[in-house]
């Protein structure tokens, strides 16, 4: 299958690969998988609890080139955004940006799911720790 130039570029030079401390109360971790192909993606966000802004994002993805490119692009897109803005991101933006073919659309869905899972993890962690919810209006 032919990958678009942008996919190849992200695949060869993935941005923001890495890990953060998952126990850090300001870090949200999303671990999601693609049930059809078995790709696994972990996305971590460092969120400023006062402003609700995503200050840093790291990912590790094990899967095809499109899955890696989708997560790499996702980290670039959400850095600097508020959690609400990031939560609202739709996979179609990734599809368009990377020019993903129909058979690879699920890779972008995976990235969207990972963003949502990471934000939910962050919110849940703060709740469990008895900390105030990050209140930001998008």
């Amino acid at each position: 299958m032919a990958y678009s130039e942008k996919v190849i570029e992200h695949y060869q030079h993935p941005r923001n690969v890495g890990t953060m401390d998952p126990t850090d109360v300001n870090v949200g971790t999303g671990l999601v998988g693609a049930p059809e192909c078995g790709d696994v993606m972990r996305l971590q966000l460092r969120i400023n609890p006062d402003s609700g802004v995503i200050e840093d994002a790291k990912f590790k993805t094990f899967g095809c080139g499109s899955a890696i490119a989708s997560s790499s692009l996702a980290t670039e897109m959400i850095k600097g955004k508020t959690v609400d803005e990031a939560y609202a991101i739709k996979n179609t933006v990734i599809v368009k940006e990377l020019n993903l073919p129909p058979v690879k659309i699920h890779c972008s869905v995976l990235a969207e799911d990972a963003i949502k899972a990471a934000i939910e993890d962050f919110k849940k962690k703060r709740e469990t720790a008895g900390l105030a919810a990050v209140a930001v209006a998008a």
């Binding site: 299958m1 998988g33 049930p35 059809e36 192909c37 078995g38 696994v40 899967g63 095809c64």
Partner: peptide
């Protein structure tokens, strides 16, 4: 069937690593 897909993809990667090849996953 979906759980199997995860195991299958991982299996390819492990096999490639054992053979000293980098796994280039193409579904």
């Amino acid at each position: 069937i979906s759980e199997r897909a995860y195991l299958e993809t991982l299996h390819w990667s492990v096999q490639a690593a054992q053979e000293g090849k980098a796994a280039f996953i193409q579904h």
